[in-house]
């Protein structure tokens, strides 16, 4: 990785210090991430515009996303 300019050196050093915190977070095999993102992109705009409380938004997301995951689990087993 380049370190020949102040920009490259700063970014390289920050990246090196970040490495100990590297992680891969678990993703469900029961639905494509794109499909779950579509739920979020449908639910969240209305929630923001209407000022819906976070708890109620959470209930809606749980319901719609878990429905998708359940269907996927039934197919995959």
């Amino acid at each position: 990785m380049p370190r020949d300019t102040a920009f490259h050196k700063q970014s390289y050093d920050v990246q090196q210090r970040e490495l100990p915190y590297f992680s891969v977070l678990p993703v469900s095999p029961y639905a494509q991430v794109d499909a779950l993102n579509v739920v979020l992109t449908k639910v969240l705009p209305n929630a923001v515009k209407s000022g819906t409380a976070a708890g109620k938004v959470a209930d809606t997301l749980n319901s719609q996303i878990n429905d998708q995951l359940k269907r996927g689990e039934e197919l995959v087993g």
Partner: peptide, 16 residues
């Protein structure tokens, strides 16, 4: 089991 069968709402028009 076709891929995407659990994600019928997937739409490139709104995919993040």
């Amino acid at each position: 089991t076709p891929p995407g069968s659990t994600s019928s709402t997937t739409s490139p028009a709104s995919s993040p």
